[in-house]
Structure formats: structure tokens, C-alpha cells
Design a binder for these strands. Structure first.
Length: 568
RNA sequence: GGCCCCAUCGUCUAGGUAGGUCUAGGACACCGGGUUUUCAACCCGGCAACAGGGGUUCAAAUCCCCUUGGGGCUACCA
């Protein structure tokens, strides 16, 4: 099942050997949760591998000791699995080309660095970061691009010992061939040519802590893992010529993978889709609160008032749980950025996969709502869009509405249970049959959050119902709401047995009797049962609660608001 | 600043590689109407785009150039 796409337009020496097998990889650096951009990159790589019967590899790029967090890798894997993106090789599943954590592959990098050093294609450097900063600043002052000055004679091993003895950092730089232009053949952008001098000159491949840099590790691993297609974000386009040069030095004669640089996804809340959006939204929200109680808010977030003030000044950012706790406390909705955010907001993974796939790709016909297997069948790298796209949450919502409608009920039920557990909803108490019934009643719901909100009244104590002021004023205190509720109570008490049909006939009869619409008799009852004007269909609401609880709630409502008199 | 990428309705996009069939199609959003026991959903209708300027050509959304605009990179981050 090899791919026979249009390679003619790139038919030159570089593409003369089109690899039979498709091997792609997703190579995140484990710095936090998987976010939308990363998920899209993973998805495209996965789809391409699946579409052509190839292999999808997960590789963890944990070469930055300062940034990697211990739990991040697990979170990323969990999020990928939630989306249904399973890897054929990688952490936890193994594979013939492991290990799949770069931090466990140091031997490879050292060996190749040694090879380059011995061949005179790389050399040692001893500058500190500060010294390099000064050099860059000088170049900038002269309005010139900074190019690292390659020494006339490369430092020897003895120089290295000396530098170490002096406590200087030791790094290794790749001597970038400067004579010919570096050409990248991007599958969707075509031929792009770079002048080596404009790339910034010789770049570091081994850091002073002994770890490889991204550009180095990436080349070594892509070769050893036999990656045939590199599909990544546009932000890597400028890295590619350097990586190609490195590849040619390391593996001469061996074809590089095909490169594809995807467009960037930008946020509909303005600017680049970034993890910073959530704290920024919270900060803006706090600033709008008139007399914000800093002490209290800090306590909610589990941080000190000092930290909170510094956050408000834009100096620091508290951790994710603190941000979420404070937002929750203030009732602020933070924009979803990470994949888990969408899970917690009640989206289906099928929606995310479908929507993400359409960000920068389309099947070429008018289909939009597609199942995963359909995406796999239709996916084609050559159909990637070149321009950046905006992440439109409203369209995502419409997609979720549709998927909630078309996915198999069993699947929806399972996802719904996971959601309810995650948010700690009282609706968790529902048994499968009841929950399935509730989901069915919520046909047209946009997210699990909608379903939860509409049905939670069934699972709380009769006395725990919180009455929404607006609902009380509008429904109970107007149009004889309380009076009608009293009548409803009497008729309901007389109903035996209590069936949905009976309830419906009774309510319709009463509406007719009073010469009003059904809404006028249904709404007071609804408010009595759940405290708001939004709930499951009223007949089902009553039947779900049962006679006893329904009557008790009506009585409690009458007791509580009856004394406050009737508005005209 | 330098280098690189990109440019069709408000948004995602089809059409562009083989110029005429494009009075530019679809979806989301929006507006109007309908349905209705709440919210949502649903049904019908409507608004709405080839960034600007030069070429090439009988003919340009489509090919070329310039301008403008947006984005990316310019680390001992990935």
C-alpha cells in the first residue's frame, strides 16, 4: 500500500528513491500537557502512517534538563491515547529502534559527535553564554546578522582539558559547509533555497552538559529510526537546511526523509495559540473584578498573596492547578488550549480528531464531519494547506454537536461517564440505563457539560436546589406562576400511577383550562424542580424524580416563595 | 534589521500544478422567518470573498513581477 502521489514535480536526484515504507514520528518535548498544535502535528503524522500502512513512532525529545517536567511525558501519552492516536514504536510499547527517550540515547550522539570531530567537520568551543550574548549584541549594533566566527585552527583535545580545568564550558559546533546553497524540498511548499551564511553559521550540536541540541539529536534519530516523512510545524522550516547539511556529513549517500512543514494554527482569541492564553485570560478577568479580595483569591489558588500580586503585574505565572482553581472560583471560563481542557469541557475525542484534521487539510470534496477511519482513508499529505489557520471554537462546538449525535450511543455513554468522573459531577450516581436515557433526552446538546447542567438536579438533595434569582422573578412571581404551581401540585398528587403520558395530559389540560400556553404551566414546575429554567424535558424531569421528590420540591418552593406574594 | 513562508466570504476552506465550464461552491458564524414545554437542536431563506497595482494572454481567482498585509526563524529551547 505504498503511496503513489505526485512526486513528479520534485523529481530530481533527491527524490529519486521514494521510500516504499512510510515511517513517521511525533517528537514532543515533554514540557507539559499536549496542546492543540502538538496534537495536530501528531495526528497528521499518525494519519499519514495509517493511510499508507506504515509505522508511527513516538519519540520523546527530553534533551533540555531545565524544561522537562517528570510527569509531562505521561500526560502527553495519556492525551494521545484519549485522542485514539496509538504509536507503533515508542515509550511503553517498545520497538526495534529504541530507546525512544533521547535522554537514553546519549551514546549515539556522543559517537557521532566524535566522528564529526575526528573528521574535522565539527569543533570545540569554550565561550560562555554571556560572552556569546555580547558578541550577538555587537553584531546587532552594527546592524549585521550574527555569524559565529569559525576559528582558523580547531581547538585540540589538550585545549579542551585546559578549558575544563579553567572551568569554562565546552560545547561542540558543527562546521556548516559554506560553499553551496542549501536546498530543501518541501512536499507542499516546493523547493526552498538557503544561503548558509544567513543561517547564523556553525551551530552547536553538543551542549556543555553533554546533551545534544535538537537539530543534532533529531538528525541522528531520524536516521536510526528510519523515518521517511518528517511532518512538523512551519517553525522548523529554518532548521531544515542545517539538519540536511548535518545529515549529509553524517550519512552521506543516504536519502533524507521527505520534509513537510505544516501551517501554524492561530487562536481565535487573538494571536498565536499559546499556553499563555489561559493565565492571560484569568489576569484580565481579575483586573475587571471591582473589589477583588487578593488574600482570599490567593488562598483559593493555594498560593501566597505576594505571588498573586506578582502574577497580576505580569511578572510570574502560577502553576496550572492554581490558575484553574482561581478561575473556577471567579466563574471565569478559560479558553481551552490543551487537549485535556477539551476533555474537561465535555468534548468528544472524535470531534477533536475530526476538527484538528481539517485545520490545514481537507479531503478535496465537501465532506467535513468524518469518522476516524474515514479520515485515515482520505488523508493525503499533498493536500495540506499552505496558509495559517485560525482555531475557531464556535465551529468546533458545531462539530461536537454533530458527533454527539452520530457516534454510537455506547461510545458516547462511556465518554460521558469519563467526563462526569473528571469533573466530579453528582450525575455520576446515575446507572448506565439512566444515564443513557438522559443522554438521549439531551439530543442536540453541544457538549457533555450541557448534559451535565441539564440533569444534575435529578441527583442532588431536594433541599440543595439553588434557585436562580432571575428564574424566580420571571417565572414564579409573574403570570400567576406560584398559583399555577399550586394547582399543578394538587393534580400531580392525584395522579396514580405517575406516567409520562399522564403528566403530559395533566399539564396540557391545565394549560387549556387556564387558556395559556403549555410554557406557562411547565415553567413554574421546572423552576420548582431544578431552580432554573433550563432542564431536561419537563415530563421526563418529573418521571425521573418520581412522585415523592417532585411533590416535596414543589412544597419546598411554595413554602419558600409563597409568602413573598404574587406580582400582578 | 536579515532570512524564509503565506494571501479566496467574518472564520475554515473548494477552485490554482493542466488559464475559459467561477454570474467563485460548501461548512461554521451572523441576520430574517418557521417549529417549540426551557435550553439546545431542527427546517427554510438571506448577507458575504478572489488584498492592491502592473504585466503575459483572445481570455487570469488561476501564470510572472512589485507593493501591502499576516506569520515564522534569527538560543548551549524544541
Amino acid at each position: 500500500m505504498a503511496y503513489f502521489g505526485d512526486f513528479q514535480r520534485f523529481a530530481d536526484e533527491e527524490f529519486s528513491t521514494v521510500p516504499e515504507k512510510v515511517v513517521t514520528r511525533f517528537a514532543p518535548s515533554p514540557t507539559g500537557y499536549l496542546h492543540v498544535g502538538g496534537a495536530r502535528t501528531a495526528l497528521f503524522n499518525w494519519l499519514w502512517a495509517r493511510r499508507s500502512g506504515g509505522t508511527f513512532i513516538l519519540r520523546i525529545e527530553d534533551t533540555d534538563l531545565k524544561r522537562n517536567t517528570p510527569t509531562a511525558m505521561r500526560q502527553v501519552m495519556q492525551d494521545l491515547r484519549w485522542l485514539g492516536i496509538e504509536w507503533d514504536e515508542g515509550p511503553e510499547v517498545g520497538g526495534p529502534n529504541g530507546p525512544y527517550l533521547q535522554s537514553e540515547r546519549l551514546d549515539f550522539y556522543n559517537r557521532y559527535a566524535r566522528q564529526l570531530l575526528d573528521a574535522g567537520q565539527a569543533y570545540y568551543c569554550f565561550e560562555t553564554s554571556e560572552e556569546l550574548d555580547v558578541m550577538r549584541a555587537q553584531a546587532e549594533a552594527q546592524k549585521k546578522g550574527f555569524i559565529y566566527p569559525r576559528p582558523e585552527r580547531f581547538p585540540s583535545e589538550r585545549d579542551v582539558e585546559k578549558a575544563r580545568a579553567e572551568g569554562r564550558p565546552v560545547t561542540v559546533r558543527f562546521a556548516l559547509p559554506m560553499e553551496k546553497p542549501l536546498v530543501v524540498n518541501d512536499l507542499i511548499r516546493g523547493r526552498i533555497s538557503f544561503h548558509p551564511a544567513e543561517l547564523g553559521g556553525d551551530f552547536i550540536i553538543l551542549k556543555s552538559d553533554g546533551f545534544p541540541t535538537y537539530n543534532f539529536a533529531c538528525v541522528v534519530d531520524d536516521y536510526h529510526m528510519q523515518i521517511t516523512y518528517v511532518i512538523r510545524g512551519q517553525e522548523h522550516l529554518m532548521n531544515t537546511p542545517g539538519q540536511k547539511a548535518l545529515w549529509e556529513a553524517l550519512f552521506p549517500g543516504s536519502p533524507t526523509p521527505h520534509y513537510t512543514h505544516m501551517s501554524v494554527t492561530v487562536s481565535d482569541t487573538g494571536g498565536k495559540l499559546s499556553k499563555r492564553e489561559r493565565p492571560q485570560t484569568l489576569r484580565a478577568a481579575i483586573e475587571k473584578v471591582p473589589d477583588v479580595d487578593i488574600e482570599k483569591l490567593a488562598e483559593v489558588g493555594g498560593i501566597t498573596a505576594g505571588v498573586l500580586r506578582s502574577f497580576l503585574r505580569g511578572e510570574t505565572t502560577p502553576d496550572i492547578p492554581a490558575i484553574e482553581a482561581m478561575a473556577n472560583h471567579l466563574g471565569v471560563r478559560l479558553p481551552e488550549i490543551n487537549i485535556v481542557d477539551f476533555f474537561r469541557s465535555g468534548y468528544l475525542p472524535e470531534t477533536m480528531v475530526n476538527f484538528l484534521a481539517l485545520l490545514g487539510w481537507n479531503p478535496g470534496d465537501q465532506r467535513e464531519i468524518m469518522a476516524v477511519d474515514e479520515l485515515v482513508r482520505s488523508f493525503d499529505l499533498m493536500r495540506l494547506t499552505k496558509s495559517n489557520s485560525l482555531f475557531d471554537r464556535k465551529k468546533l462546538l458545531a462539530f461536537n454537536t454533530e458527533h454527539l449525535r452520530i457516534e454510537p450511543p455506547q461510545k458516547v455513554l462511556q465518554h460521558c461517564k469519563a467526563y462526569l468522573r473528571e469533573v466530579g459531577s453528582p450525575v455520576q450516581q446515575a446507572d448506565d440505563a439512566t444515564l443513557a436515557r438522559i443522554i438521549k433526552l439531551c439530543e442536540g446538546a453541544r457538549t457533555f457539560e450541557d448534559i451535565e447542567r441539564k440533569s444534575t438536579f435529578v441527583f442532588v438533595d431536594d433541599r440543595q436546589i439553588e434557585f436562580e434569582e432571575k428564574a424566580v422573578q420571571k417565572v414564579l412571581f409573574k403570570d400567576h406562576g406560584l398559583e399555577i404551581l399550586g394547582q399543578v401540585r394538587q393534580k400531580l398528587a392525584a395522579l396514580d400511577p405517575l406516567t409520562e403520558q399522564g403528566i403530559e395530559e395533566m399539564l396540557r389540560g391545565l394549560a387549556e383550562e387556564r387558556q395559556v400556553g403549555l410554557g406557562k404551566v411547565a415553567q413554574p414546575l421546572r423552576v420548582a424542580l431544578c431552580g432554573t429554567t433550563i432542564s431536561l424535558p419537563i415530563f421526563d424531569s418529573v418521571s425521573l424524580l418520581g412522585r415523592e421528590r417532585t411533590l416535596r420540591r414543589i412544597d419546598l418552593t411554595l413554602e419558600r416563595f409563597g409568602a413573598q406574594g404574587q406580582a400582578p
